[in-house]
Design a protein around this nucleic acid. Structure first.
Lengths: 331, 331
DNA sequence: CTGAAAGCGCTTACAG
DNA sequence: CTGAAAGCGCTTACAG
């Protein structure tokens, strides 16, 4: 859509530096086969001419690319944005260029984004998959390209994935409540049939079993919004007014639940969240929550990417540790 | 870093479809100069061979690119993430590919990101600039490339920018309070010397003047966090206990101020925010705030981009309208 | 409407 | 350590 000007090429640089194109190319590709005097002359010429390396040409000729696509399902979630940023910085440190793209929680956009990025010759795809991503689609993609999924599992897919240990997260959160002797405990989450949610419920159920407690039926608030959670909780509470403890799938849901509890006359319900979403608000600093370190996830992801690029087979599933942070809401 | 396999080219497609390379190319570039029977054969061949268009080769040959870099200073701010996503979708609709990159509020990273993206042959740069971005740097960039800045002004730069009308935002917010007869009013913001903050203060001051009110000295909470705002407000309140109205630069600061007010024995202080940051929390729904529509900003940005790509000169500054949303906090 | 040819800016063996 | 040459996958006039 936009026509570039004359463009300075390695030929111009070579001419100015009084060497051949090949020598310039060797300098640009960080080869050590070039004498220091030549190298200095070349760097000087590059600077004087304002030469810009053309990676399209280089990628085409060498059939290599250092472009890594990062496809994020929800960029407006600060945790996801932080993860994407961390990844970008790590990739930069390793000579790779990140290209962040939002799939905006749409399967169609996700498929489209990947299709386009293939045309731009991405060397790898790091995907925070949209809910209900089709495993076959992912498998087809990862058969032809380097692919890693993050944060959310696509069940039975062959693509390596890196996840927080959701099961452990809900387990420690639930045990923390149960150790205080609560008896009427419930789990609330969104889209309960999804793999991640199943893992959370599993940790919760294990904890209940260990304390010989029979939990109430889990509350499903459908879409993951605070308002939905608030309404779903109020509804559920009508049927179970003896409730005294709630394990929430994440901070957003916890916010809704807390808002619901504050609207009740009783305030004797303990709340924990299994998935902390960092934000700069003062507001949430009473919530007992399980912190998920997106920096750790990003680091792990990079290691796996390096394995993929070296054609060694990485683990298909990597669980990153989580930590319970105890605050007022569960006391 | 990663070696692609054999790769199917337009030559293979041409062979299979029984036409020449040129004809295939014409189809790929959406030319209408190709007969329908040929076109169908070609599309069939593309599908059967799993051909992937190589945009690097196309860009190099045609010296055109449809890659647009979006450089965001703070991707973890949901408003910015939403803006980036909106832009991406609009660009897609117009045959352009967005490449989102985070500058993570670092001048160095911002400069580096732009330098790298030039090598990837970006057709345009849409930048939400880091605070204190150097105008000369931006001018040099925009002399050679298509550049638009968003959300935050780099004073005296030649690059076209699209902003919310910050002055109007603080003006309507302040007038709303003053109309209720408040007398001891103060403005609180972060980094008060920055251009955007100056605009906010200007709207505030104008409103005070219109009501013949002398405002207290503005409160500067340095970094833009709720905690900072809370502490700065508590400190300021000690010196001015008669305060009865606060105009906050944005929602984050407002959260801190409200937290501070709640910790006081009196609750008779009205609060408004000049810059709404959308998030899914229920919590903030008592705050009177000025909504900034990032979708409008994105649309405006696209129009300006189209002008730039057509080499017409767009307005150097575009202010997008804002709307006051009245809620409990100012009643 | 189609084909042959040149060339975008680079990298990569291969001789010197 | 350096130079000449081939070629990556496309697009673009230019003849037919």
């Amino acid at each position: 859509m936009h026509n570039k000007a004359k463009s300075v090429t390695i030929f111009d640089v070579a001419e100015r530096a009084g060497v051949s194109k090949s020598t310039v190319s060797l300098v640009l590709t960080q080869s050590d086969k070039v004498g220091n005097k030549s190298k200095q002359k070349i760097l000087k010429a590059i600077d004087e001419l304002g030469y810009v390396y053309n990676r399209d040409a280089a990628a085409m000729r060498s059939k290599r690319s250092n472009l890594v696509a990062i496809v994020i399902n929800d960029l407006t979630n600060p945790a996801m944005a932080h993860l994407a940023t961390s990844l970008q910085l790590l990739l930069n440190d390793n000579g790779l260029q990140a290209m962040i793209v939002s799939s905006n929680n749409s399967l169609e956009l996700q498929a489209n984004a990947v299709k386009n990025l293939k045309e731009y010759n991405a060397a790898a795809f790091i995907i925070c998959p949209v809910a209900n991503t089709c495993p076959k689609w992912l498998d087809t993609l990862s058969a032809q390209h380097k692919v890693i999924t993050l944060m959310s599992e696509v069940p039975f897919s062959a693509a390596p994935c890196v996840l927080p240990d959701y099961k452990k997260a809900s387990h420690v959160a639930s045990m923390h409540l149960l150790a205080q002797g609560v008896t009427n405990i419930v789990f609330i989450g969104s889209e309960l049939t999804l793999s991640d949610s199943q893992a959370l419920q599993s940790g919760f159920n294990t904890a209940c079993a260990q304390h010989s407690i029979t939990a109430l039926a889990p509350i499903d608030c459908a879409v993951n919004t605070a308002l939905n959670a608030k309404n779903a909780f109020i509804e559920a509470y009508k049927h179970s007014p003896t409730l005294n403890a709630v394990v929430c799938a994440n901070d957003i849901i916890a916010q809704g639940v807390i808002a619901a509890i504050n609207s009740l006359t009783h305030h004797c319900i303990k709340v924990v969240s299994c998935h902390h979403i960092p934000n700069s608000a003062v507001i949430n600093n009473h919530l007992t929550t399980v912190a998920i370190n997106t920096t750790d996830i990003a680091k792990r992801c990079l290691l796996i990417l390096q394995e993929l690029l070296q054609n060694t087979a990485p683990p298909v599933k990597t669980l990153v540790n989580v930590n319970l942070q105890i605050r007022d809401s569960s006391q």
